[in-house]
Simulated assay, not measured.
Amino acid sequence: MTAGSNEPKSRYLQYLEIVTGSLEEKKRYRQYKARIKQLPENYRIAVEALERYLMHFGPVDGAGAMEMYDDLAELFEQGAADGTPIRDIFGEDPVEFVEAFVANYPLGHYRARERNRFTSAVERAAGENTTTKDRTD
Score class of each variant (00 low, 15 high):
Glu41Ile: 13
Asp93Cys: 12
Ile45Asp: 13
Gly79His: 01
Tyr32Glu: 08
Ile89Gly: 05
Gly79Asn: 04
Pro85Trp: 05
Leu54Thr: 11
Pro85Ile: 03
Phe57Ala: 11
Leu72Val: 07
Val47Pro: 00
Ala46Pro: 09
Leu72Asn: 11
Asp93Glu: 07
Ala73Lys: 04
Phe90Lys: 06
Ile45His: 04
Tyr69Leu: 09
Gln78Glu: 14
Val98Phe: 05
Gly64His: 13
Asp71Glu: 11
Tyr43Gly: 04
Ala73Glu: 03
Pro40Tyr: 12
Ile36Lys: 11
Phe57His: 13
Ile36Asp: 01
Leu50Val: 09
Gln38Ser: 05
Ala63Thr: 15
Phe57Gln: 15
Asp88Ala: 06
Glu92Ser: 14
Pro40Met: 13
Ala49Phe: 11
Asp70Met: 11
Phe90Leu: 03
Gly62Cys: 10
Met68His: 07
Phe57Lys: 10
Phe57Asp: 05
Phe90Asp: 02
His56Met: 10
Arg52Asp: 10
Leu75Pro: 00
Glu99Gln: 11
Met55Trp: 13
Asp82Ile: 00
Gln78Lys: 07
Glu67Val: 04
Lys37Pro: 01
Val95Ser: 04
Glu77Ile: 00
Asp88Tyr: 08
Ala80Asp: 04
Val95Glu: 01
Val47Asn: 07
Asp82His: 02
Val98Gly: 10
Val60Ser: 13
Phe57Leu: 09
Ala65Ile: 10
Gln78Val: 12
Ala65Glu: 07
Gly91Tyr: 06
Ala34Cys: 09
Ile36Val: 15
Leu50Asn: 01
Glu99Tyr: 06
Gly83His: 03
Arg44His: 06
Ala81His: 09
Arg52Trp: 12
Asp70Val: 05
Gly64Ala: 14
Leu72Thr: 01
Ile89Asn: 02
Glu41Trp: 08
Val60Asn: 12
Glu92Asn: 14
Glu74Ile: 11
Thr84Leu: 05
Ile86Leu: 06
Tyr43Met: 08
Glu96Trp: 12
Leu39Met: 09
Glu41Val: 14
Glu48Met: 08
Ala46Lys: 06
Gly79Pro: 09
Pro59Ala: 11
Gly91Leu: 11
Ala46Cys: 04
Met66Trp: 07
Ala65Lys: 15
Tyr43Ala: 01
Pro85Thr: 08
Arg87Thr: 12
Arg87Leu: 08
Ala73Gly: 13
Val60Gln: 14
Asp61Gln: 15
Ile45Gln: 12
Ile86Ser: 02
Ala81Lys: 09
Asp70Leu: 08
Lys37Thr: 05
Ile45Ala: 15
Gly62Met: 05
Glu99Met: 06
Asp82Asn: 07
Ala49Ile: 02
Tyr32Trp: 07
Val60Glu: 15
